[in-house]
Amino acid sequence: MKLILSQRLHVMAAAAVTVLGSMFAINTATKSVEAIDTNTSAQHQAQSNDSEATAKDTAKTVVKTNSVLHPAKKIVIKPGRNLIAEANERAAAKKAAEAKAAALKAAQAAAAQKAAQEKAAQVAAAQKAAAAKQAAAQQQQAAATQSATTTTTSTTSTTTNKGTFKLSFYDPAVMGSNMGYSGVAANLSTFPRGTKLKITLSDGTVWYRTVNDTGSFAAGNPNQLDVAMPSSQIPSAGVLYATVEVVG
């Protein structure tokens, strides 16, 4: 807008200069011929009017020509950049990215810690199971040792031969019993509870056991004993025959 006003003022000034120049030229010409001017006042007035009209036409021509040579330029206003706002946006985006990365790192650390705890719990459980298994094995070994000691212990007590009996075997621990391995299950009408027996196998092995239980095999067969023994020591044959004597 300021440019357009400036251009217009420039044009108007040029026109005014032209008009004044023309009038000065006319006035000078008039004065130079004033001594021989024989025209009437009406003729002078007409000439003056013609000069002013010519000056005005000249001014219009100058204005029109200047407008063509120097057309007004259209001012285009372009939106600028808000550098402060852009910097704030970049800072906020960076902060958000850092917060997201920190949250991801914390989640990964928590997952790793949880996995480590689960692994430690599994190791502890395996160790506990191994300790329990070892304790059970030691208990069985102690019972087997006691049974072997009882078998090899000689006695001077008198015995009564009851004949040949069928022997089967069972592990009380497997059945959830804590009666140990020093007893046998028998038909209680043949051998009452507490009866001490000497059992002699065909290869000469001797076991001393006490009747402390009965069972389906022995209860249904008066000539059968069910001998308590650790599973690892039960004969592979499963069923044996032995001479049985009552001690005492």
Rank of each mutant, 00 (worst) to 15 (best):
residue 213 D to K: 00
residue 151 T to H: 14
residue 4 I to V: 13
residue 236 S to C: 06
residue 72 A to C: 11
residue 133 K to V: 02
residue 159 T to V: 13
residue 23 M to K: 10
residue 8 R to C: 12
residue 244 V to A: 05
residue 248 G to N: 03
residue 131 A to F: 00
residue 53 A to Q: 14
residue 139 Q to M: 07
residue 8 R to S: 10
residue 121 A to P: 04
residue 200 T to N: 08
residue 204 G to S: 02
residue 240 L to E: 01
residue 147 S to W: 11
residue 135 A to L: 03
residue 139 Q to H: 07
residue 135 A to H: 05
residue 127 Q to H: 10
residue 53 A to C: 15
residue 170 Y to R: 01
residue 42 A to W: 09
residue 159 T to Y: 10
residue 158 T to Y: 05
residue 100 K to D: 08
residue 105 K to E: 07
residue 234 I to R: 01
residue 196 K to I: 00
residue 74 K to N: 15
residue 171 D to C: 00
residue 144 A to R: 06
residue 87 A to F: 06
residue 139 Q to D: 06
residue 135 A to E: 04
residue 216 S to M: 10
residue 40 T to A: 06
residue 140 Q to W: 04
residue 143 A to S: 09
residue 11 V to P: 12
residue 93 A to R: 10
residue 132 A to V: 00
residue 100 K to G: 06
residue 22 S to I: 09
residue 193 R to A: 14
residue 115 A to T: 02
residue 28 T to Y: 15
residue 230 P to T: 05
residue 227 V to I: 08
residue 231 S to L: 03
residue 47 Q to L: 10
residue 165 F to I: 00
residue 40 T to F: 06
residue 158 T to Q: 05
residue 97 A to Y: 13
residue 166 K to H: 06
residue 68 V to I: 11
residue 126 A to F: 06
residue 146 Q to K: 15
residue 39 N to G: 15
residue 25 A to V: 14
residue 131 A to P: 00
residue 100 K to L: 07
residue 187 N to P: 04
residue 79 P to S: 03
residue 204 G to N: 02
residue 106 A to E: 03
residue 175 M to N: 08
residue 11 V to T: 14
residue 53 A to T: 15
residue 210 T to S: 04
residue 5 L to K: 15
residue 182 S to H: 11
residue 79 P to Y: 04
residue 22 S to R: 15
residue 50 D to K: 15
residue 218 A to Q: 02
residue 236 S to G: 08
residue 119 K to R: 12
residue 40 T to I: 04
residue 62 V to W: 14
residue 241 Y to I: 01
residue 197 L to Y: 02
residue 16 A to I: 09
residue 97 A to H: 13
residue 131 A to H: 01
residue 91 A to N: 05
residue 45 Q to H: 15
residue 64 K to R: 14
residue 87 A to G: 07
residue 17 V to G: 12
residue 198 K to C: 08
residue 47 Q to N: 12
residue 231 S to H: 05
residue 48 S to C: 13
residue 50 D to W: 14
residue 185 A to V: 00
residue 97 A to G: 12
residue 57 D to S: 13
residue 107 A to F: 03
residue 166 K to A: 04
residue 135 A to V: 01
residue 99 A to Q: 06
residue 15 A to M: 14
residue 129 A to G: 00
residue 18 T to E: 15
residue 133 K to I: 03
residue 156 T to Q: 09
residue 28 T to F: 14
